[in-house]
Design a protein around this nucleic acid. Structure first.
Lengths: 326, 326
DNA sequence: CGATCACATGTGAACGATCACATTCGGGAG
DNA sequence: CTCCCGAATGTGATCGTTCACATGTGATCG
């Protein structure tokens, strides 16, 4: 019977090879203390010999835990979410969890719901929501999630389950910096209007302006891309009734800088520009960009720490928002 | 018995509610043709009422197909891989598959192997390898994969299972462009030395130089970041024994442009710069960058098409490398 | 020396789906 | 009216693991 059956070895094959019962093998796999060291090594040897890999589906079925964390993410090559997800993935893997990521291309309610539905069909153990748009709370409410979840970068609406950087504070920082340079006419280019954090940054901008006795300007909605930053910039620069600008993210700022070059306006001579995110490229823009750093790694770390501790039944951790820095 | 048990409804609960057998429910779920339309709707109604979701673990166990595609990806906020993965995710979801992504931070053999191991433990149905570094083939060879897989952006070493953009051709395009501008001393900044596609681009550069009767210069290894581009640039510009440079990717080019500003060298007046990738920001650099466009979306699309057709048992599709464009 | 007890191991029954096969039900042909 | 056949539905076994509990095995102690 040396004919290799087309079937992968299972726990009983290992048991037979090791001369023990299948349950003993199971114990060896799960680091049960109730097993003699000698038998454990015997079992592990058999496992190595057969090239046995535990079947995760069977395990998931028996334990009703899939060791999978679902991630709903707004489609975006954006630096922030990407960084956070990578951190989450690494931390999850360390904790024995894998990630199932679903991207949504449009931020509308329908596709959020579809994305969540897709994830919930997968019997995930926990959920990370990195879709910081307005519709998300409605979607989360309507589908009864049934598993622990966190929302990322959606400041404050649901503090118990959200990990975020204090965007309002970030907006104030950026604005204060410009005011400190002596500017009084400060424009603001935002991201899409339905992004929660973009709204929060505007709030920070607004508060800081009012506090300094200055007139906040209207919020110009972009889409986080350099192309839009450029386009809005070209429009703004026609009038040029401002001396400083706060851009919702660094890509937008890059586009704006480009517009300045096109029109022959010098930065920071004629106009001061502040970005947001501190992407690695920002230091190399022309000129180097002043920007607000967000610790996306910390975001990811906390998100996963929160979930894992909840999955392990430990007490909840702290939820204080993370402070950004200039 | 109206007490809601803490247990999620299963297929038998649905069957009971609909007044049919569990097998009939299964048939309704799997769009079996052997079921009357009226019973199907009856079953679907019961499903909706109970909020039943099929248990994917149980299904995976019974069918021995997990509907999961594993992705091994080199850690990178890099534009290319990120874009490809997003495309893959969308296409996979459309085909009913979900993605399990594992990032590796260092490109060494050990962590590749660990990453693959982690994925193979998950009973994946197929594998996408987006880790275009030298060690990957060894790792793939040593772990017997046992499922269909494709490697992405690892030009040509295993044409049957690889989807790639013709990097050599891309390297030639970029170099030819510079030669066409009349340059004779053309430098080259690469990515890390173990990246397969970086090597291929250098080959293209080299071939094109030789063909034009010019002396190719040595390959300077960076790490795809702007910071390194800047640093290498500062070094290079001390001597300034070249009039043009081909940068391995756009971020590197950005860093190099920064170095040029630092030293007071004008681009493209004194030195011509060509990038690679055509990231969305490239058009907004100062000055706007000439770059080689790679169709990362097409890469992702083909990868998933290849895998899905193999999973469905259809014939293999074409494997021609994708041509980049300037 | 035999009862006790902790420790180590083994056995049956889930988990929730699909697969393979058995059964029922109508309706048309002979 | 019977027989047969295909369409629709039902029943037992199975996938590979863990859980709950039963059983065996030494060592300890009076």
């Amino acid at each position: 019977m040396d004919v290799p059956k087309r079937r992968a070895p299972n726990i009983r094959d290992v048991a037979r090879a090791a001369g023990v019962s299948y349950q003993t093998v199971s114990r060896a796999l799960n680091d049960s203390p109730a097993i003699r060291e000698s038998t454990r090594t015997k079992v592990l040897a058999a496992i190595g010999e057969l090239g046995y890999r535990p079947n995760s589906a069977a395990r998931a079925l028996a334990t009703s835990r899939s060791k999978t964390i679902g991630v709903l993410s707004s489609q975006s090559g954006l630096y922030g979410p990407t960084t956070s997800i990578q951190t989450i993935e690494a931390a999850a893997r360390l904790g024995g969890y894998r990630l199932s990521v679903t991207n949504i291309t449009t931020g509308d309610y329908e596709s959020m719901r579809a994305g969540l539905d897709f994830l919930l069909d997968q019997s995930i153990d926990a959920l990370v929501v990195l879709a910081p748009q307005d519709g998300i709370y409605k979607a989360l409410r309507e589908l009864s999630i049934g598993v622990p979840y966190v929302t990322l970068e959606a400041t404050g609406l649901d503090p118990q389950r959200s990990v975020s950087i204090d965007q309002t504070h970030g907006g104030r920082l950026a604005t204060r910096h410009l005011i400190g340079l002596g500017h009084e006419q400060i424009a603001y280019i935002s991201g899409p209007s339905d992004w929660i954090e973009a709204q929060a940054r505007y709030v920070g901008y607004r508060e800081e302006m009012l506090q300094a006795g200055l007139q906040p300007r209207e919020c110009l909605f972009g889409d986080w891309t350099a192309a839009t930053g450029h386009q809005i910039g070209m429009n703004l620069l026609k009038d040029r009734d401002f001396t400083a600008i706060f851009c919702g993210n660094d890509q937008t700022a890059l586009g704006f800088l480009h517009a300045c070059r096109d029109v022959g306006v010098s930065v920071p001579g004629d106009i001061s520009v502040v970005g947001f995110d501190d992407i690695p490229e920002a230091a190399h823009f022309a000129p180097a960009l002043t920007t607000v750093r967000q610790n996306f790694v910390e975001i990811g770390r906390r998100a996963i720490a929160l979930l894992l501790s909840e999955l392990a039944g430990t007490d909840k951790l702290s939820h204080e928002p993370i402070a950004p820095e200039l």
